[in-house]
Nucleic acid binder design. Structure first.
Length: 361
DNA sequence: AATTCGGGGCC
DNA sequence: GGCCCAGAATT
């Protein structure tokens, strides 16, 4: 059992990617916490640039704890799963208020947003913990090495993966072993078309022995997809600012700032719905249709029909749920859909004699 | 145990 | 167009 751990570590030392949070062990717990929360269900190449920007905005735990939730959410814009940002902020405040970091998996698990995986990862990478962080990568690698016929989401597979990773770590007792397992899953033992010819664990892999790596783990059941149609109003003032609305609780993207949106019912015409939505804002304006946008949120496929209109300065007053913002630098928490709509409406601006983008004084 | 929550990249 | 991603919280 010694050999696999050594082979894995050898491969990792030679092949690992340089990532901004991969500093020598034990790592700065703040940077580990931040990266691990960002990496929940989010791929490395998407996290990397945002991680750098976030650390510039909030360089320390104290800086994050003293920021407002709105500021944190704004810095999280575009990354998705915005609940993570709220929980991260709450965790930072709790740690800062306590005056010291929890250092065990169990006590870390008690913080908001830290589940079994993140708590184990933070404990291992920053505090010498020996409980394996079991993520989707480790689960998949274990399912193949052990040829376990279980769905990736099953409790049984998670438990077996943790037991196996723990053994590996006992024979190669460094946090790098855990990181190496995840790196292996991301780079070699991929979900599709794994590169078994380059795998340091191929010699002990049961799935590879039967040439059936692609059959593990079993697929999890998935909710069927729904299709939706939305209209969005892109209302532009003469100074280039656009109207955004803070979405309420109980709906998608709650707390984020998007243009006014309404869902189309049945076979309703987009233009009619846009006019009705405009009416509820107490406005009258000529609506120009923009190019439809595709957006997906979990199991929903949404087609968004944008309508652009020129607005007078005094027609809509700002309040806590309504704000005129420069679209290229809103300064509030936005969804990537907000950005998509901005891009889709940009070509229409010049046609209507509006400035193509806001320029700050 | 199942559902919810974002978003993008890749086959 | 389906699948998956360094998951957690809620039901």
């Amino acid at each position: 059992m010694l050999r696999p751990g050594v082979e894995l570590l050898r491969w990792f030392m030679a092949q690992q990617r340089q990532l901004p949070w991969r500093t020598p062990f034990p790592r700065d717990p703040y940077l580990v916490l931040l990266s691990e929360v960002m990496l929940q269900q989010t791929q490395v190449h998407r996290v990397t640039p945002l991680f750098r920007r976030f650390v510039e905005n909030f360089p320390t735990l104290e800086a994050l704890a003293k920021a407002t939730e709105a500021e944190v959410l704004a810095a999280w814009s575009g990354l998705g799963y915005y609940r993570r940002a709220r929980a991260l902020h709450a965790a930072a405040r709790a740690i800062h208020a306590a005056g010291a970091w929890p250092t065990t998996r169990e006590t870390l698990h008690a913080l908001p947003g830290l589940g079994p995986y993140t708590a184990a990862a933070l404990a291992a990478f920053s505090f010498g913990g020996s409980d394996p962080p079991v993520d989707g990568n480790v689960t998949r690698v274990a399912a193949r090495v052990l040829a376990l016929n279980a769905p990736a989401s099953s409790v049984r597979l998670r438990r077996e993966a943790e037991r196996w990773a723990r053994q590996l770590h006992r024979h190669a007792p460094t946090p790098a072993t855990f990181e190496a397992l995840m790196e292996l899953g991301a780079r070699i033992c991929r979900p599709k078309l794994p590169s078994c010819d380059r795998c340091p664990l191929a010699a002990i892999c049961a799935a590879h022995a039967s040439n059936a790596s692609d059959r593990y783990p079993l697929p999890s059941s998935r909710r069927p997809r729904e299709t939706h149609r939305w209209v969005a109003l892109w209302l532009v003032r003469r100074d280039g600012r656009v109207l955004l609305h803070r979405r309420g609780e109980g709906q998608l993207l709650s707390g984020l700032w998007l243009p006014p949106i309404r869902e189309l019912v049945d076979s309703q015409e987009p233009k009619a719905a846009a006019a009705a939505l405009l009416n509820t804002l107490g406005l009258e304006a000529r609506l120009t249709p923009g190019k439809p946008i595709s957006h997906s949120i979990t199991h929903r496929d949404i087609t968004v029909f944008p309508f652009l209109a020129k607005c007078d300065l005094t027609q809509v007053a700002e309040n806590s749920e309504l704000a005129w913002v420069p679209p290229d630098d809103p300064g509030v928490a936005t969804s990537s859909l907000t950005h998509k709509l901005s891009l889709a409406c940009c070509p229409l601006l010049t046609e209507l004699g509006l400035p193509v983008s806001y320029r700050s004084a």
